[in-house]
Simulated scan of single mutants.
Amino acid sequence: MTEAVDRAWPRTARLDAPQIIDRIADITGVRLILEGPAPGGEVGAAYVRWPDGRRSVLTEGRSRSGPLVDRARQAGIPTARHELAAHVDGARVIVQQRLPGAPPDRMDQTLVRQLLALNDRLAGLLLDVPAPKPSDLYLTADGPGFCLHQPLAEHSARSAALLARVHAVGAAYGSAMIGDDLVHFDFHPGNVLVDAGRVTGLIDWDGATRGDRHFDLVTLRFWLTGRHDELLAPIDRRLDGISRRRRDAYWAHISLRMVDWSIRHHDETTVEHWLTVAESGLDGDRPPGWAVRPLSA
């Protein structure tokens, strides 16, 4: 294995909940009480309590995702209401409803079926909303703090080869995702809450955008590959219905995103895991069940 490049790549800072709570009090006059860190998440979240006793979750995020979260909830998806949004020292912070449940400690077919049903509810949710420019998958240029290309180019020969394949997909198919569905954009088990085997929340809608809901299924498949291969069949049956162009573009995006983030925030074992997953789904070397289809849109 090629030795990884020893370089300090820029890292995304973790949530500093005490400081943010102080600043929210300064700006809004509302004094939240910190209860402790919320589990999971790459950037972090915190449990807080309002003066009237209500319990909520403090995160950093985009306040403009609130209307999309509301639309998802109207479609029957369990999402948290945004209760406060503020601009704090150059970052947007959100206080949102605390939903019941916790991230699943195990994955099974019942949970996968529930996630597929939630994904179905995202179909066409933005048909009546004027379409902005298509969502960028960042296959040919850096994303805003994620999907950075240079870490892959310099980390190792293996990551550089993956980056070349991502660039090839971007050159062949473009780097845009189109559609009228609501896309969560980070649809994986860590952003799901369950209670007694039932999904009680889909959280972290910070990246929510307009596009193709199958993008979320590719993300889910990526996360499960290599760890829960026995759960992939129903996801693959859904993805067999979309074109190779879309599958490759979506897989290239999540490959870039996960490997870049791991290089900058995690250990080499994690990087190698996501490289292996990424390589399994590009350039025709697809996992079982991914039929190669004509290069049609």
Rank of each mutant, 00 (worst) to 15 (best):
V48R: 03
R246A: 14
I235N: 05
I21F: 08
R81K: 09
R244C: 09
D105S: 02
G281D: 07
W274L: 04
P104D: 01
V192A: 04
F215T: 10
P104T: 00
L127K: 10
D216F: 11
V57C: 05
L115R: 06
D240S: 07
P288T: 07
V30D: 14
H184C: 07
D136G: 06
P100D: 08
R71S: 02
D136F: 07
L231A: 00
T140P: 08
D186L: 06
D204M: 04
L232M: 01
W290K: 13
A164S: 11
T270K: 14
S56I: 06
P288N: 02
Y47W: 08
P294S: 12
Y47C: 05
G207A: 06
D16T: 10
A157T: 04
T28Q: 15
D212H: 05
W251D: 15
I235V: 02
P39N: 01
V183S: 14
H214A: 10
H228R: 00
D195F: 01
L202R: 02
W223V: 09
L15V: 08
L99S: 12
R92N: 06
S175H: 15
S280E: 07
V69K: 01
A4E: 11
R237Q: 14
P144F: 00
P287M: 06
G124P: 12
A208L: 01
V43C: 08
G41Y: 11
Y173P: 11
I242K: 09
R106Y: 03
I77F: 11
G241W: 09
D285G: 04
A13I: 01
L220V: 08
A161G: 05
Y250S: 13
D236C: 05
I20N: 00
R221S: 15
P189G: 05
A297K: 12
L282W: 03
F222R: 06
D285S: 06
R237T: 13
L224F: 14
Q150Y: 12
M258W: 15
A291D: 10
E42W: 11
L275R: 00
I24Q: 00
I20D: 00
R237N: 09
R23S: 10
E268S: 13
D52Q: 02
I263G: 05
A38Y: 12
H155F: 11
T79K: 02
A153W: 06
N191D: 07
V192C: 05
V277I: 06
A17F: 08
Q109L: 01
K133C: 13
Q19N: 10
I20E: 00
A75T: 04
D180Q: 15
G53C: 04
A13D: 13
V57Q: 05
S175P: 15
A161C: 00
R7S: 05
L137Y: 08
D206S: 14
Y138T: 07
A72R: 03
L116G: 09
I263Q: 01
A196D: 01
D89Y: 08
P10D: 03
A85Y: 13
P18S: 07
D186Q: 10
D236F: 05
